[in-house]
């Protein structure tokens, strides 16, 4: 079970790396989703430590909540990205956006 949790940590870090490294907004949104998946994996993997066959279900409910929140945020972010691209022609945050 620790193995799954470790992979969760890995996913979190990989997502964070991509979030930092790439300029394209769609990629940043993907990266946030991957980070989220990593956190969910940690939550659920560690929930198996009950010592019985039945895992602790409270984290499961939390993760379902988290998934729904994630899809809401993703939808909002994608729309915002499209609006921004329609304004500027690029789906990136320009560095000199202040006037």
């Amino acid at each position: 079970m620790y193995f799954y949790a470790l992979i969760g940590v890995g996913l979190f870090s990989v997502g964070l790396y991509a979030l930092i490294n790439y300029a394209h907004l769609l990629r940043k949104i993907l990266a946030l989703n991957v980070m989220g998946s990593g956190i969910f994996l940690i939550l659920i993997a560690l929930a198996k430590r009950t010592g019985e066959t039945q895992p602790d279900v409270v984290p499961h409910a939390m993760v379902i909540t988290g998934i729904v929140v994630a899809v809401s945020a993703t939808a909002l972010a994608l729309t915002l990205m499209l609006k921004l691209a329609a304004e500027t022609g690029r789906a990136e945050l320009s560095e000199k956006d202040r006037d």
Partner: peptide
């Protein structure tokens, strides 16, 4: 695999 079928359903459908 982690005995979380509810999450699996949610992930497959939503995630």
């Amino acid at each position: 695999r982690l005995d979380a079928p509810d999450v699996a359903l949610a992930e497959a459908a939503i995630g």
